[in-house]
Amino acid sequence: MDFKSSDTIPGPRTEDHLPHTAQAAVKIVIVGGFGVGKTTMVGSVSEIKPLTTEETMTQAGIGVDDNYGSDTKTATTVAMDFGRISITDQLVLYLFGTPGQERFWFLWNGLFEGALGAVVLIDTRRLEVSFDVIGRLEERGVPFVVAVNSFPDAPRYPMADLRAALDLPEEIPIVECDARRRASSRDTLMTLMRFLHSLAMTGALT
């Protein structure tokens, strides 16, 4: 990384600056397999062009056993796209689109633990990716809703069948969405927020 002249460092456009009154941020994580529409969803609701934060991981650091016995360390770069929505002059919401594999999650400390909640984005052509994600979120006590991103060539199932296939408890909302449409992505986030609100009302958040 060269910093020859700080003039060449790109920064936010003037209109993208947060006000000085911005006191705190909250975050929501959008999680799902590759190509499921995470970046699309972030981009459709974000007030800034989605940005990317990266982290490098060496296989040695994660205790994988697939190359056990080999001393070649392979470095993987894991990227997360994210966007931003200003809620008030004091409060900012960030949305992170993160890969479904749990071994990537710890690279960004507290990614899920500090989040208000998560949207599990699902492609019905590759449901199996979602089992693991849902299981891990349940284990960690992260509240989440499930959104089925409707690709035109994807098989369509009744929501009740999907719920059964995913072994999803009755109280967890499952909705359809089109991540390309702002209104649809916003409604998905609203579903999560209403779910969190209902948990808060019933004191079910533990």
Partner: peptide, 8 residues
């Protein structure tokens, strides 16, 4: 939560 909902 209500503030975030209102913002969305």
């Amino acid at each position: 939560l209500e503030a975030v909902m209102h913002g969305l």
